[in-house]
């Protein structure tokens, strides 16, 4: 099915968007001296108290910030990387005091866990995996899934961490005959994991048994799209992909996200929603994050746009602040906040 069959969400004009949907809560002013590469949130326990903390990453340093009050943050731990630069933070759900990071140049070469020893609170890092790593994702129940190699020597591994983040258990998932590029969790079916491949397929695994359940080819119109999130509802999979198409048309506007519905039993799929920019706004998807029913994207114009996937339209636009384009956007995993980052390292925290 082509994108032409997809239902097009309403394109409200910019002036109809409620600017009150995003309220600035606090700011981490230029926390690092070099270019910011990622931001995330996590729970950190100190002296028996769990606190929602922020993790910032630039190429050679990862920092943990704890809240001093509702407006201010204090840097409490820092991990340094002198040999291989940091590419991304990999948050692991349901675990305290453990951060994972992916390191490499253009492609991921290492995954490391960052910890603090309980005795002297000194920072340490543990190499979890090295090699030609194609994709990595933290999933519920303290698990980390990664794929290494290409289709003929591909290995897909799931690590399970102990509650304190220390020891781990390893299991292999059955690889498909195509190279896996990205993973996505399935909300509503906790033991299901989705993957996208180089040949434009979506694959489903059973995380508990390691079985490969299905390989489904999707229309080439979705080529090069990354799956950000999937929802299992009423026997169907609703899959959120970013829209790789740069074309803007009168009818579609500028599509940034798209939603496909897939019947996992028959592998049949159809496009159901296009998330386009409001009229008068231009820009393509640069990077983004989807949590529950909200999708956020940094656009090539430097603006951040947010869509409510249930309403089917854009609900907020955040233009560059102080003439600085946005470069990062992440939903907080610990509350309903949005973390927006600028290239110079400034992080702004908004309530949505």
């Amino acid at each position: 099915h082509s994108t032409e069959q997809t239902e097009i969400a309403d394109l409200p004009a910019c002036e109809n968007l409620n600017p009150g949907n995003l309220q600035l809560v606090s700011e981490l002013k230029n926390p690092s001296s070099s270019c910011s590469v990622d931001v995330s949130t996590m729970w950190w326990e100190r002296a028996g108290t769990k606190e929602p903390c922020i993790i910032t990453a630039c190429e050679d340093v990862v920092s943990l910030w704890k809240p001093l009050n509702s407006l201010q943050w204090e840097k409490v731990h820092t991990w340094h990387f002198t040999e291989v630069p940091v590419l991304q933070i990999v948050p692991v759900p349901d675990v305290c005091n453990l951060i994972c990071v992916a390191l490499g140049n253009l492609e991921i070469r290492e995954i490391r866990s960052l910890l603090c020893s309980s005795g002297d609170e000194s920072e340490k890092q543990v190499l979890l995996k090295s090699g030609d790593i194609k994709a990595v994702l933290g999933v519920t129940k303290r698990r980390l899934v990664s794929s290494t190699g290409t289709f003929c020597n591909q290995q897909i591994q799931i690590m399970t961490f102990a509650e304190d983040g220390s020891s781990k258990d390893e299991q292999l998932l059955m690889p498909p005959d195509e190279t896996v590029l990205t993973f996505a969790e399935v909300q509503g079916t906790q033991e299901a994991l989705l993957g996208t491949t180089t040949m434009n397929s979506i694959v489903i695994w059973n995380l508990k048994t390691g079985q490969l359940l299905k390989k489904m080819h999707i229309d080439d119109a979705y080529q090069a799209a990354v799956c950000h999130r999937a929802y299992s509802e009423m026997g169907l999979l609703f899959v959120v992909l970013n829209h790789p198409c740069a074309k803007e048309s009168q009818a579609l506007g500028s599509p940034v996200f798209q939603m496909l519905v897939i019947n996992p039993k028959t592998a049949q799929s159809v496009g159901v929603l296009l998330c386009s920019l409001p009229q008068g706004q231009a820009g393509r998807f640069l990077e983004g994050d989807v949590k529950d029913h909200v999708a956020a994207a940094v656009l090539t114009s430097g603006t951040i746009a947010i869509w409510d996937l249930l309403l089917g339209h854009c609900t907020a636009l955040l233009p560059p602040v102080s003439d600085q384009s946005w470069s990062l956007v992440k939903w907080s995993g610990t509350d309903s906040h949005l973390l927006a980052g600028q290239k110079d390292g400034n992080i702004f925290i908004y309530r949505y």
Partner: peptide, 21 residues
Amino acid sequence: ITDLGPISLNWFEELSSEAPP
């Protein structure tokens, strides 16, 4: 959505029982 063939609410369990171990 009607073009997608028969829908099963237990698709995950059914595919798990059909797939090779």
